[in-house]
Design a protein around this nucleic acid. Structure first.
Length: 537
RNA sequence: GCCCUCGUAGCUCAGUUGGAUAGAGCGACCGCCUCCUAAGCGGUAGGCCACAGGUUCGAUUCCUGUCGAGGGCGCCA
């Protein structure tokens, strides 16, 4: 890697200049402004004070030393600003980047080649099995799956899990509501009143008992949720049943363990977790005075189970659950687990708009918009891409009109069109009877157009972007890269013709390889966010 | 009242462990098709990075406070 080379060269120079102390690491970054070269280090600024030197002066000395001993691939070293040292590369990296990218291919480009022996469980969606998924679940669904893909890309061993709250009063209520509708009656006061209950009840067999209705409704809801998630290309490795932990005794085992650790106590006939000892603002009831569990005890049991199977846990929760993070972390600490091994990204709320108009309810049912309606209206690719468009930490405004638009103003079409154009070039060239020659036979020194350089610069950055996106749990960074990269593709497409009367065959070959490398990058990025790369549009 | 998240262009949002002149898309205005899809490309205008302090060579970024927005504070899940 060029960065290793540069770091070593800078450290050598610092030693030669008797800088003391020598910094532990030399940070290299890509300057935002291209006039500042290809790579830049602030090492002179960072070390000057400790070493009792003037930053700008130290920088100049570094430049002098480095210029006299130019590292391979470096064309020039310059001093700038308060003491930045900037590196300008020669053009040898162009061909190298193309070769590396195409050799890696879409499956491995930008991804870690070495598996990390760490098991990560990403739990997301985890909606109640009492109805269809609605639009509010979409952000967590798209985010959770993209996060899982990112973790896989950097080498983790990843499991996707859906925690099914199939125990508790809501299941009874759900079953009663189904039965009521089956009999043509209104559900009781606090029952489920949605249109979907009426629709689903019609499919339910006659004469079911409440337990049978519960089982039937449970299966039906899970099947429905699985289907719509499948439309989005989201599949879970495990649908973990809360109820199963009653049967296996896992819940009682967890409670016994908590008692053993002395972190629970009895009061008012209930069993309490002493969570205030671990940073929570209140102690929490684990077992109610009527003997039933609150949600938190099964939750603890579930996390205990997960920690037995994995090293790191990631729970994707909606903003309405953020208040539960402290108690969950407290519970983990109380059970002897490292709270830092559990991370809980929160997805902020989404406002659905149709143009200027806020969309609160479904036109069809007059109720909360189902995820299925959303996917039917705008498609799976747009749903995934647009929900990932921005950081989940910030509330999102989602415009359905824009999402359904088949014009370039729609970011997902803009990016997919970039891929279609690359394919189009390849097809045209192929139709003209031109074959891409072996890499070794191609002269990449003919490349150098600003559009070409921009594509290659972005390809070079992609691996870093993936690593940062995974580390920061921010798939939207991949989306941003894709948008920038697509812009570079459209610019190249516009200004740099691959084939034509006035295009030298040597240039055609070099650009043909560049097109393929670019395509690999684009497809790899789209795969990471679960969006398709169509060959034509 | 307490807790969490957030506040950047007219709108929707980026901003990579604190770096150089804060970016992109949309909208507005102005250009570019004899040529692999103009479903595109280029340019111009548009900013007190909510506000006030602090930390330091340097703060949109870190800390504190104020104001504003959203969410949460059950023996519901």
């Amino acid at each position: 890697m060029i960065t290793d080379l540069l770091q070593a060269a800078v450290l050598d120079a610092l030693t030669a200049l008797d800088v003391d102390p020598i910094p532990e690491s030399v940070s290299l970054e890509r300057p935002a402004n291209r006039d500042h070269g290809d790579w830049s280090t602030n090492v002179a600024l960072a070390t000057a004070k400790k070493a009792g030197r003037n930053p700008r002066e130290l920088g100049s000395q570094l430049v002098e030393h480095l210029s006299a001993n130019l590292p391979d691939g470096v064309a020039a070293v310059e001093i700038a600003g308060p003491g930045f040292v900037n590196f300008r590369l020669d053009n040898s990296w162009l061909g190298e980047t193309i070769a590396a990218t195409t050799a890696a291919g879409v499956e491995t480009f930008g991804r870690s080649t070495q598996p990390i022996p760490t098991k990560v469980i990403v739990e997301f969606v985890s909606a109640n099995p009492t109805g269809p998924l609605h639009a509010g679940h979409a952000r967590g669904a798209c985010y959770g799956d993209a996060l899982a893909r990112l973790y896989e890309a950097v080498g983790f061993d990843v499991l996707r899990e859906f925690y099914v709250n199939d125990r508790g009063v809501q299941m009874q209520t759900y079953a009663k509501s189904l039965l009521a509708r089956k009999n043509g009656e209104e559900p009781e006061e606090d029952g489920y009143k949605g249109q979907y209950i009426i629709d689903w009840a019609q499919h339910m067999p006659d004469g079911l008992s409440i337990d049978e209705a519960l089982e039937w409704g449970y299966e039906y809801a899970i099947a429905d949720q699985t289907e719509v998630l499948g439309q989005l290309g989201i599949h879970f490795d495990l649908w973990f049943s809360e109820r199963s932990m009653v049967e296996t005794g896992a819940i009682e085992a967890s409670l016994a363990e908590l008692r053993e650790r002395g972190v629970v106590y009895d009061n008012d006939g209930a069993v309490w977790l002493r969570s205030t000892d671990y940073g929570d603002d209140k102690d929490r009831v684990l077992v109610r005075s009527d003997g039933d569990y609150t949600y938190i005890l099964p939750d603890i049991a579930y996390h205990r189970d997960k920690f037995n199977r994995a090293d790191r846990l990631v729970n994707v929760w909606g903003a309405d659950h953020h208040g539960y993070i402290p108690r969950m972390k407290a519970a983990m600490e109380a059970t002897g687990h490292d709270p830092a091994a559990l991370s809980i990204p929160i997805t902020q709320m989404v406002r659905l708009m149709r143009g200027d108009q806020e969309v609160k309810l479904s036109k069809r049912t007059g109720e909360i918009i189902e995820l299925r309606e959303l996917v039917d209206e705008i498609g799976a690719d747009a749903t995934r891409f647009l929900y990932l468009l921005q950081s989940v930490e910030t509330p999102q405004t989602f415009d359905l009109q824009l999402a359904a638009s088949k014009a370039m103003e729609n970011p997902v079409y803009y990016v997919q069109m970039a891929h279609a154009r690359l394919r189009s070039i390849q097809n045209k060239v192929s139709e003209a009877g031109i074959e891409r020659q072996p890499l070794e036979a191609v002269d990449f020194s003919v490349l150098g157009h600003e559009r070409e350089l921009e594509l290659l610069r972005q390809l070079q950055q992609y691996g870093d972007i993936v690593a940062i996106a995974a580390r920061e749990q921010s798939p939207h960074k991949v989306i941003n890269w894709l948008r920038d990269f697509a812009a570079a593709v459209h610019g190249f497409y516009h200004d740099c013709y691959v084939m034509g009367e006035d295009i030298d065959p040597t240039l055609t070959q070099a650009r043909l390889w560049l097109v393929e490398a670019t395509r690999v990058g684009l497809v790899s990025g789209l795969n990471l966010v679960g969006v398709s790369a169509p060959d034509s549009m």
